[in-house]
Design a binder for these strands. Structure first.
Lengths: 350, 350
DNA sequence: AAGTTAAATGACAGCGCTGTCAATTTTGTT
DNA sequence: AACAAAATTGACAGCGCTGTCATTTAACTT
């Protein structure tokens, strides 16, 4: 700053430093620093004064300087290996919006979770970029080799996992309550009069698959409907899997009247296979998906699904992670999200 | 460094600074800095000495310090606003791999290209993150307001655009030759015996739409087939658009025997609509897409398309951009990619 | 061989911020 | 009201690197 504007009264687009803010608000640089970083031990009145100056000058901290000077790091990483691009983008956008709010930087690191040296690769990336914390989604969030290494090198992390009870205390986590969501979906189908409900599962390497199956089964039981194991088809989280799974179910003499697909891609595949066999949706067969990904909207009819708010999940996960990095104690280090039934056009009364 | 390793002979995982390298190689820090940054005016012998020391110590420059001290920036940004998550992820991965190779950092910035203050938002992000250059994809690469602002504030950029001739000299660019690719696709259909070829277009805000239409039309003409304007349906780059476009085409008395869809989502929609109307693919109707996105593989039958190697495109674009930032003169600042026909199962002889 | 010019190298300050620790103010206690 | 303890704030050094500019060394010239 410190450049005169020739009385124009408008701010010149100049570099604003922490020092400018300190002078304007009449405190020391260090105090401004404290306010910026949300540290305790700053009187509310002081905080307000500083914030006002920050706003007036439109001050934005220099990330490089902060990172150089501090022992702390203000960088987090998002490690991903997921063929589902929609999921990754949603996550990324959610993480990014929290980072922006909290003045953190994000390093994104695409990689192959099945590579031999994945642990070393992650470690090296963390050292190089001075990463303070990592957002972990499946499959990484469910790999002990990853979480153990992160613990060893003292890097915080937050896990987004499928489940409905806190798994342990090693890190904050967000649980996606696939069980309850599956219960709601199954109950929806039962309420529509369906009794023979097929199930096409996701891959066995995903915990979500099991949670969703259990939700489905327990709801049948609760409604006094016998679980027919041969109505449960092993699958993968893919379109092709939906096609072949639905084919199997539709070839039976006693066709199910509804299909619970473990995600929207499977559901889209099931929808496709049904069309091929001239089975009218939803008249002759109801189909539900899971996730509310664009897949569920890019079909006709649009697919009834469970809305999983990935972007919000990612944002909250990031908030938990940053809290942890800052060493701020919070009551809850785990949060739970339950995807909500979203009724669209692929389900109907039987 | 400077921590004794108790004679183990192994390197401890310690912070190695430029000073360590300087001492080991017997030159000044500044000279090491010159070598690291590939500056001229360093004798080859000196350069070798330094490089040896760098290697021995496994030195990696501290990005924050470099950015703080220098006037130069080693950060580039990828600005995106694209509903097609697959495209974004491919781009991002390509950009990232070149960044890693060249020791640059990447800032990703999702935003809304139609927001009122988008220009100011981008400007502010660039200042804040000290961005040296930007990778621009459609629609940003085709927005003069964006390229002009970037020029004004002296930030380099590279554009990825649809076209087959160099548009201007304002920046390096990668052209995706949609015209020639559309020619190849259309010729493929003609070679299969098709004469009545429908066309479902993408959005009018995309230059690619026009390039693809022109390639289609000119190939018909070259083969002495009359262009029927009413076979060309205005659409958007979406599944729904494919459904409704195909519906229109299939309602005609003289149905086309093939449909050229402006991208794979449209093609998937057209495929779906055809199924609904019991039109067998590819027996009664051939359908082609464009882009080779996962959409084209998640259908049955799999869709014939044009393979657009987005990740490679992104990587080359990034290389051009970094060259430009480094001020290195290269003969060619523009490159061209022509998507290649990829014959799958949705096209057949008529 | 001495003088001139160009190339290569180094000394040092300082980028904008935070950690440390000391100084100051506020709060609580008797 | 006087003192102790706790909460708040500030002074200053220095993070690891690069820009500037002075200095040294090599490469030509005549």
């Amino acid at each position: 700053m410190s450049i005169d504007n020739h009385g124009q009264g408008k701010k010149i687009n100049m570099k604003v430093t922490i020092n400018d803010v300190a002078e304007l608000s009449g405190v020391s640089m260090k105090t401004v620093s404290r306010v910026i970083n949300n540290e305790a031990s700053v009187r509310q009145a002081t905080r307000d004064k500083v914030m006002a100056a920050v706003k007036e000058l439109n001050y934005q901290p220099n990330l490089a300087a902060r990172s150089l000077a501090g022992t702390k790091s203000y960088t987090i990483a998002y490690i991903y290996d997921n063929p589902n691009a929609y999921y990754v983008i949603d996550m990324q956008n959610g993480i990014l919006s929290e980072c922006k709010k909290q003045n953190f930087e994000l390093v994104i690191h695409p990689c192959n979770s099945k590579a031999d040296d994945i642990i070393e690769e992650i470690t090296s990336m963390i050292k190089h970029s001075r990463v303070a914390g990592v957002v972990l989604t499946p499959p990484f969030s469910e790999m002990p080799s990853v979480t153990e290494r992160l613990t060893d090198i003292g890097v915080k992390f937050v896990r987004i996992i499928s489940g409905h009870k806190v798994p342990d205390e090693i890190s904050p986590c967000i649980m996606v309550n696939d069980f309850d969501a599956a219960v709601e979906i199954t109950q929806h189908l039962i309420d529509l009069g369906h009794k023979d409900i097929g199930f096409i599962s996701g891959g066995k390497e995903h915990k979500s698959t099991f949670e969703r199956i259990e939700g489905y089964k327990s709801t049948l039981v609760k409604n006094n409907i016998t679980v027919q194991e041969d109505l449960i088809i092993d699958g993968e989280y893919s379109f092709e899997s939906g096609v072949s799974g639905a084919d199997k179910l539709l070839q039976r003499q006693n066709r199910p009247t509804a299909i619970f697909s473990c995600n929207d891609e499977i559901a889209a595949g099931a929808l496709f296979a049904s069309r091929l066999q001239h089975v009218a949706i939803p008249k002759e067969l109801s189909i539900v998906g899971f996730e509310n990904s664009p897949f569920s909207r890019q079909t006709w009819p649009k697919i009834t699904t469970a809305d999983q708010p990935n972007q919000t999940i990612a944002q909250n996960a990031t908030a938990l992670l940053i809290n942890e990095i800052r060493g701020q104690k919070t009551d809850e280090i785990c949060e739970q999200f339950t995807p909500k039934l979203l009724v669209r056009d692929s389900t109907a009364k039987h």
